[in-house]
Design a protein around this nucleic acid. Structure first.
Lengths: 343, 343
DNA sequence: CTGAAAGCGCTTACAG
DNA sequence: CTGAAAGCGCTTACAG
């Protein structure tokens, strides 16, 4: 099966290469009959134009969008990717997958992306690294959209969950259950998402007339072992809280383990709520009440923003400047780890 | 920043385009001094050859390998991808990510792959679909390697865990703990992996002199609700088993839930072992004893096999025909869900 | 509405 | 060891 080219089609259809090209590119200025004839030959011979050749001839960037995903721990990447794929799928773009090998060094990945000159735009998932390389990329004309970013990079467009509302809702739920002493098991406060979650926590308390006790905010840095130890100590206090709101699910698990370590039952003695709703949260015992992030929608949104940035005119449904930072609503998933405050 | 091309470099270095090209492609027949001079200009101007142009000129397939990953739910994709990326990373290939939107129809994805003519080879993860499109691909000269495939496709090279040994080891572990009545919570028996796991289960029993009781093998089809119900019924029997070996982790969770439904403790009253070691298995309560699959290694192996198939000569460390079906060793991860058989 | 020609950026025989 | 030339498969003014 030797490769069939535009020249072959032209010959077989009895037209010039130019005409075939026009047909392929849906030019309106081709006689319908001619078009039909050419199309017939094309399908009969199962001809597919060479993507690289046309990219070259068009002189534009190749039809790829790069996606940098974090290495090993993909909990949220599956749905995120699914969202991205669902919109890219209906465009001429393909996704090139770049894996950031190591959470602390993706410069080589970006170099490679730059070197190949393949990406018309790039999507960056959950990274917490020096942003400079990305800013450079952006300035060199390669649009960048951050998804669920961990650092604070106000210079690049991004999409993330509404962390403030999510946290507010979770704490509100705890308050509704009668809890008044509610701890916050905080993630790294350098992350904007954690700052937002913390504000949501504090505002919910304040609005409910519960004074904020700063000793109830624990800095776990998202490290389960640290979280477990901190919660253990917290539960040893005489004035221990009756509930803990963790900034993510894995530290919520750690909090539940700490409770078990202290012989406390969840949720009878202490309620625990998390954030993320990673798949395991439905399986832990007790199943975790948590704030679900709209990963799939986030992926879709980010893909749309990137496409809009690449070619403003052809943006799907895109009129006007897309907002630089999009926050998507979360969902409170109430399961078994939260219950009425003990009497 | 207007695009700089090979012509610019040639002019600036005072040589011909041919020479620059030879330098770029590491031809040995370039004078070292010339090479150095050209290289200097290249780096000074940050020149990167156009990948599409060189692909075109070389006439070969573009430097991409396609990877089809299952849509939303794949807990194993992360490590698998990491393994794949780690080997592809050190080649000129890039990975194009294709997402099979729907578990029952990836034909459009393959059509797209074919249409773009972009992939030099393709990696297919955990699919259970009609193989014909893949066979066609393969016959059209696009090598295909299956990873962790669910169907039985003996015509395509594949890599998977050693399911037989894994199951054998898990059941051996249960036997060592004194269990004699051990149930098998089987996955779809049309899957070769499940057939292998079942054989491992049976052989371990047989070798230990335990007769096989077919009523102890439950067909859950990997469906947790079905599994839960079947295990409940099983535990209601007077001659209930003291242990269950599930063909995957999620049905093992279901088995643990069934035990709880019947007021039985795990592992005191009944031990449960799974297969896969997905991330949640370390977090469920009790933490699940399970057979860990070497996902990362599987990804690496598959990538190597694909590269070898694409260009037999340049295969990394590849001499001779790579085996068509590779089985990689599993690891028994003993956690808290298995214990001594009750007296 | 259609074709001849030049060109996209690179590679590869072929001379020298 | 190096250069001139043709060509990879397509697109795009430019004529007609």
């Amino acid at each position: 099966m030797e490769k069939i080219t535009i020249r072959d089609i032209a010959r077989l259809a009895g037209v010039s290469k130019s005409t075939v090209s026009l047909v392929i590119n849906n030019s309106p200025r081709v006689d319908p009959a001619t078009r039909r004839r050419v199309l017939a030959v094309i399908t009969r011979h199962n001809y597919v134009p060479s993507a690289t050749a046309s990219a070259l001839a068009k002189g534009g960037r190749p039809p790829f969008i790069g996606m940098i995903v974090p290495g090993l721990t993909w909990r949220m990447v599956a749905p995120l990717n699914f969202g991205v794929a669902s919109v890219i799928e209906r465009t001429p773009y393909e996704i090139i997958l770049y894996t950031s090998t190591n959470d602390h060094d993706y410069a080589p990945v970006i170099d490679r992306m730059l070197a190949s000159g393949l990406s018309a735009g790039v999507l960056v998932i959950s990274q917490d690294q020096a942003m400079q390389p990305l800013l450079d990329l952006h300035e060199q004309g390669v649009p960048v959209v951050l998804i669920n970013t961990l650092g604070s990079h106000f210079d690049l467009p991004s999409v993330e969950a509404d962390n403030y509302e999510g946290a507010y809702g979770a704490v509100r739920h705890l308050l509704d259950l009668g809890h008044r002493r509610i701890a916050s098991l905080a993630g790294p406060m350098t992350y904007p998402c954690c700052q937002d979650r913390q504000r949501g926590y504090e505002d919910a308390l304040t609005e409910a007339g519960v004074p904020i006790d700063v000793s109830l905010t624990l800095q776990s840095g998202f490290e389960p072992p640290v979280a477990r130890e901190l919660v253990r100590e917290l539960l040893d206090r005489a004035d221990r809280p009756t509930a803990v709101f963790a900034h993510n699910d894995v530290t919520a698990y750690a909090a539940m383990e700490a409770a078990a370590d202290r012989g406390l039952r969840v949720p009878e003695d202490v309620s625990v709520a998390g954030f993320d709703d990673i798949p395991s949260s439905a399986h832990v015992k007790p199943a975790l009440t948590t704030v679900g992030q709209p990963f799939e929608a986030m992926g879709q949104q980010a893909a749309r923003m990137l496409l809009a940035a690449i070619s403003p005119e052809s943006a799907p449904g895109g009129q006007g400047q897309p907002p630089a930072r999009v926050h998507l609503p979360t969902t409170l998933v109430v399961r078994d780890s939260t219950g009425p405050a003990p009497a």
